[in-house]
Amino acid sequence: MKKMRAMTNLLGCLLLLVVWQAAGAELSESLLATPLQVFVALNDTLLGNAFWAALGSMLWQMSVGYALALLVGVPLGVAMGRLPLVRALVKPWAAMFIVVSAAALVPLFILLLGRGVLLCVAIVFVATVWFVVTTMMEASRSVSPNLLDVARSYGASPLQVFRLVLLPALHPYVLIAARIGLTHALRAMVTAEMFISTGYGGLINDAGLDLSTAPLFGLIVMLMLLSVTATGLLRWVANRTAPWYASRTGDH
C-alpha cells in the first residue's frame, strides 16, 4: 500500500519533469528553462558561497520570527479557544492581519523598523502568528468536552485538566500549526528579503535579471525543496509522536 503510493508519487514527479522538459524545449531558456538547464544552473549556484551564506542568514532570521510566532501564537490561540473574553478581544486583530499579505506590510515595516534583523523577524512573526493563532483557536475549541469531563470526574484540578488533557489533545494541532506557519514564515521571509534585496530574496532578484530563467528556477526549486523537507519533517514528527491523530487522518 505504502509502496504503491510512493510509486505513484514518483511517477507523478517524473511526468511533471517530462512535461516541463518538453515545454521548456519548446519555449526557450529565457522563458522557461528546462529541468536539465535548471539542474546545471543549480549546480553552479550550489558551488558558490553566496548561496549558502544567503540561505544561512535567511534561515536563522526566519527561525527567530517563526519561533516567536509559535511561542506567542500557540498560547494565545489556546486562550482564545478556551476563554470567550480573550477571543472577543483578539479575534478582530486576527481577522484583520490574516488577510494582509506580507508584501503589503514590508514597506511600512521598513519605515518603522529599518532594515536590520528586526525587520525580517517582525515580518515573519506578523505573517505567521495569526495563522498559528487561528489554527490553535479552532483546535482548542474542538477538544472533546467528554474528555475534559473524564478528567474532572476523576477529580482533576484545572491545572491538571490543562496538563493532562488540553495539552496532549492539542499536541498534534501544534504540529499542524507549525507546519502551516512554516510555509507562511518562509514566504514572508523571502518577500521581505526581496524588498531590501538581501540574502536569498536578493539572490532571487538578481537571478530575475538574467536572460536565462534557469538560475531563477534553480533558486525557487531549492526553496520548494526546503519547504517540502521541513514540512515533511514536521509531519514525520507528528506521526511519530501523535500516532492516534495520524491514524485518524489516515496518515500512517
Binding site: 472533546s144 467528554n146 474528555l147 469531563d149 473524564v150 474532572r152 470526574s153 476523576y154 477529580g155 482533576a156 493532562l164 488533557v165 496532549p168 489533545a169
Partner: peptide
C-alpha cells in the same frame, strides 16, 4: 467531583 467515585462513560472516553 473525585472523592471515591469511579465513572464509566458510554463511549469509553479513553484518552
Amino acid at each position: 467531583t473525585g472523592k471515591g467515585r469511579g465513572m464509566v462513560f458510554q463511549g469509553s472516553e479513553l484518552m
